[in-house]
Lab assay of single mutants.
Amino acid sequence: KLNEKEKELCQMVRLVPGAYLEYKSALLNECNKQGGLRLAQARALIKIDVNKTRKIYDFLIREGYI
């Protein structure tokens, strides 16, 4: 299910792929509902370490998901 970049992200932030996909889905759904997504909203949405949230958020922006 994951592409190579997503696999690298999961290894870097030490997330299991299932958890990453869950977080990605939640962030994309919220982004679609709101018409955009700020980091503060992402942090409130997924209750994990803020540094991990930041890396996931930055990755999703860089890859054009949000």
Rank of each mutant, 00 (worst) to 15 (best):
N29T: 12
N32G: 11
C31R: 02
E30L: 11
A44K: 13
R43N: 14
E6G: 01
M12L: 14
R62Q: 13
Y65L: 15
A19M: 12
K7S: 12
L39A: 07
I48N: 11
C31M: 08
D49W: 09
I46E: 07
K33E: 07
L39W: 15
C10V: 07
F59D: 00
G18E: 15
E4T: 09
K55M: 14
E8R: 14
E30T: 09
A19Y: 06
N3H: 08
L2T: 04
E63S: 07
I48K: 10
A44W: 02
R43E: 15
L27V: 05
A42V: 05
R62S: 11
N51R: 13
Y57M: 08
L28M: 15
L2V: 05
A42Y: 00
Y65I: 14
L39R: 05
K47T: 08
E8G: 04
Y20H: 01
P17G: 00
G64E: 08
E4A: 13
S25D: 13
L39Q: 03
E30Y: 12
V16G: 13
R62A: 13
E22A: 12
Y20N: 01
L15D: 04
L45E: 05
R62F: 01
L21P: 00
V13D: 05
T53R: 08
Q34I: 07
K55L: 14
K55T: 12
E8D: 10
Q34G: 10
I46D: 06
E4R: 13
A40Y: 07
L21I: 09
I48Q: 14
L60H: 00
L2C: 00
Y57A: 04
V50I: 13
I61F: 09
Y20P: 03
R43L: 15
V13S: 04
Q11P: 01
N32Y: 09
T53N: 04
T53A: 13
R38I: 09
N3T: 15
R38Y: 08
V13G: 00
L2P: 02
I56H: 02
K33H: 12
E22H: 08
E8A: 13
N29G: 10
C10T: 03
I48W: 07
M12D: 15
L28I: 15
P17S: 01
D49V: 14
G36T: 10
A40V: 09
C10N: 12
N32K: 14
E4Q: 11
A26S: 08
C31D: 06
L39V: 06
G35Q: 09
Y65W: 12
V13T: 12
D49A: 12
E6C: 01
L9T: 01
D49S: 12
T53I: 11
R43M: 15
C31A: 14
I56W: 00
E22Q: 12
Q34E: 09
A19D: 15
Y23F: 11
R43Q: 15
A44V: 01
P17L: 00
V16N: 15
R43F: 13
R62K: 14
L21S: 07
K24T: 01
L21M: 08
A26W: 05
A40Q: 13
A44I: 03
G64Y: 01
L37F: 04
A26M: 15
D49I: 14
R43S: 14
Q34M: 12
Y20F: 07
K47I: 07
V13Y: 12
E63L: 01
Q41T: 09
A26K: 14
P17E: 08
V16L: 13
L15Q: 01
G64H: 07
A44E: 14
L15A: 00
P17Q: 04
I66D: 06
Q11F: 00
A26I: 15
T53S: 10
L21A: 09
E30S: 08
I61P: 02
V16E: 15
L27R: 02
L39G: 06
A42L: 06
L21V: 09
A42K: 03
E6T: 00
D58Y: 02
Q34K: 14
N3M: 03
I61N: 09
E8K: 11
V13R: 03
L39F: 15
A26F: 05
Q11H: 10
L45A: 11
Y20A: 02
L9N: 02
L15C: 04
D58S: 06
N32I: 11
K33V: 08
G35F: 03
E30K: 06
R38P: 09
M12Q: 15
E63I: 02
L39Y: 11
I56C: 01
Y23R: 03
D49H: 07
G36S: 10
A26R: 13
Y20L: 02
K55E: 12
L9K: 01
K55A: 14
I56S: 02
L15K: 00
K47E: 08
E6R: 02
L60K: 03
R38L: 13
A40M: 08
V16H: 15
I66G: 02
N3L: 04
G36M: 10
G36N: 07
Q34W: 10
G35M: 05
L45W: 01
A44D: 15
E30G: 09
E8I: 06
A44M: 08
N29P: 02
E30M: 11
D49Q: 05
L2A: 04
N29A: 15
Q34R: 13
V50A: 14
K24C: 02
M12Y: 11
D49M: 10
K47V: 00
E63C: 01
L45D: 08
L39N: 07
G64P: 05
Q41E: 14
K47Y: 03
E6P: 00
E6M: 05
K33P: 03
G64C: 02
A26E: 08
I61S: 09
K24G: 00
A44N: 14
K5H: 09
T53Y: 02
D49K: 03
T53D: 04
V16W: 07
E22D: 07
L9Y: 04
K5G: 08
G35Y: 01
G18K: 15
I46V: 10
R14L: 02
R43P: 06
A40K: 11
L27E: 01
V13A: 12
K1T: 10
F59N: 00
L21Q: 09
L60F: 11
A19I: 06
L45M: 09
L60Q: 06
I66F: 05
R14F: 02
A26V: 14
L2E: 01
R38N: 15
K47L: 03
K47H: 09
L2F: 01
F59A: 02
G18M: 11
T53Q: 09
Q41R: 12
Q41W: 02
Y23T: 04
I61G: 06
P17W: 02
E4G: 05
V13Q: 06
L39I: 11
I61M: 14
R38E: 14
L37I: 09
I46T: 13
Q11K: 15
A44H: 13
